[in-house]
Amino acid sequence: MSKRVISALIALPLLIVFTIYGGIIFKLGVSALTLLALYEYVNAYKNTNYKIIVPVFIAIYFLNLIFIFTNQGPEKDLLLIVLAVLISMAIPIFNKEYNVISSALTCIGIVYIIVFFNMLIYVRMGTNGHKFIWLIYIIAWACDTLAYYSGSFLGKHKLCPEVSPKKTVEGSIGGIVGSILGVLIWCWLNNDLKLNLLYMIILGILGGIISQIGDLSASLIKRYVGIKDYGNIMPGHGGILDRFDSILFIAPIVYYYIEKVIF
């Protein structure tokens, strides 16, 4: 527990500082997290029969950096995905070290890590981004916290034991409630935005569900490759992908919800 507390006391202030400053500072922070997460993803598969096409990761990562720091919008993510698919599918044709599974895992990693991390930047740099960015964190943390305590005290029915044995249906419901409460508290703190409360409650429900899917998806990969954590950069917490699994799934939901529903 002491390792978890110490790690949190170091990591949380850094995240808060990067988020508050925004601009190039936030972009640098997210870019660093993206690079570390890509490394963890590649490393997770090192003891399996499948190889990630690392050169594609590297090429798409640096192309993405150029786009980010020249203030390109989310429309360029489609170009990244198209290039990733084209190149990843072509390489196994000429290099038998890789196969079609390598192509699939590479493309999934690029969308899951690079594109989803980009969404944090788009939210932060958008209209009222200095306020909406906290909504992503709050949904993830509130959901995770209430899911944990609801499951600990009320949990009786297993949710999906083959993926995560400790998670329960009761904990999952508690997580959704936590997400809704988190969104409502955020709305109260930002009442000057005059947002539609019903729309925000719906976002809380969606966020609670998607947050848990993100968590379970990360666990599914770990079970498949036979690892406990993606890394140990945060002692007691694991790696970047262990801590940002929910946030990565919530970020695109919040971004598109803001763009298509709220505004």
Rank of each mutant, 00 (worst) to 15 (best):
A140E: 04
S246Q: 04
I173L: 10
Q72L: 12
L181D: 06
P235M: 12
I233W: 07
Y257L: 07
L120R: 01
Y39R: 11
C187F: 01
A8V: 09
R4N: 13
E75I: 15
L78Y: 15
Y112S: 07
V163L: 13
Y148R: 09
I68P: 02
I93R: 13
N43I: 09
N71C: 06
G29Q: 04
L79F: 13
F117R: 00
L35F: 12
K51Y: 12
L78S: 15
F116Q: 05
I213T: 06
Y149W: 14
L154K: 03
L9D: 14
Y39Q: 11
Q212G: 09
Y21E: 00
A104I: 15
I113S: 09
E162T: 14
V17M: 03
P235Y: 10
C187D: 06
L86F: 13
L28W: 05
I247K: 01
M1E: 15
L198R: 10
Y137V: 06
I176N: 01
I52Y: 03
V54H: 09
I247A: 09
S219E: 06
Y21N: 00
K46F: 12
L12K: 06
S219Q: 05
P252R: 02
T48Q: 12
V30K: 04
L35Q: 02
F249K: 01
L9S: 13
Y122I: 06
L12C: 08
G214K: 03
I139A: 05
V261D: 11
K156V: 11
S246E: 04
I60E: 01
I93Q: 15
V17G: 00
L86P: 08
G238N: 10
P92F: 09
I176S: 02
V254L: 06
V123G: 00
V115A: 08
L248F: 04
F69P: 08
S7Y: 09
S217W: 02
F57R: 01
L33A: 11
I221K: 01
V115Y: 04
I20M: 02
S152C: 10
L38S: 06
L181I: 14
I240A: 09
I233V: 14
N43Q: 14
I201F: 09
A90T: 15
I240W: 00
S7R: 13
V100L: 14
L248Y: 02
R243D: 13
K228Q: 12
S211F: 03
I136S: 02
N64K: 05
W134V: 02
L195P: 00
G207T: 02
F117A: 06
I240Y: 04
L15D: 00
V163C: 08
A104Y: 10
L248P: 10
D144F: 07
I227V: 13
L189M: 11
T127M: 11
L135A: 05
L198E: 10
L120C: 04
M234S: 12
G155Y: 02
N47M: 14
I133Q: 01
I173M: 04
I25M: 05
E259Q: 14
R4G: 15
S211G: 14
T127Y: 15
V254C: 04
W186Y: 05
S179L: 07
I213M: 08
H157F: 11
P161I: 11
I185L: 12
R124Q: 01
E40G: 07
I60T: 08
G231I: 05
S179F: 07
K131Q: 06
K46D: 14
S179A: 13
L135K: 04
L79R: 08
G236R: 12
L189Y: 03
I16H: 05
D245V: 01
E75Q: 15
K166N: 14
F153T: 03
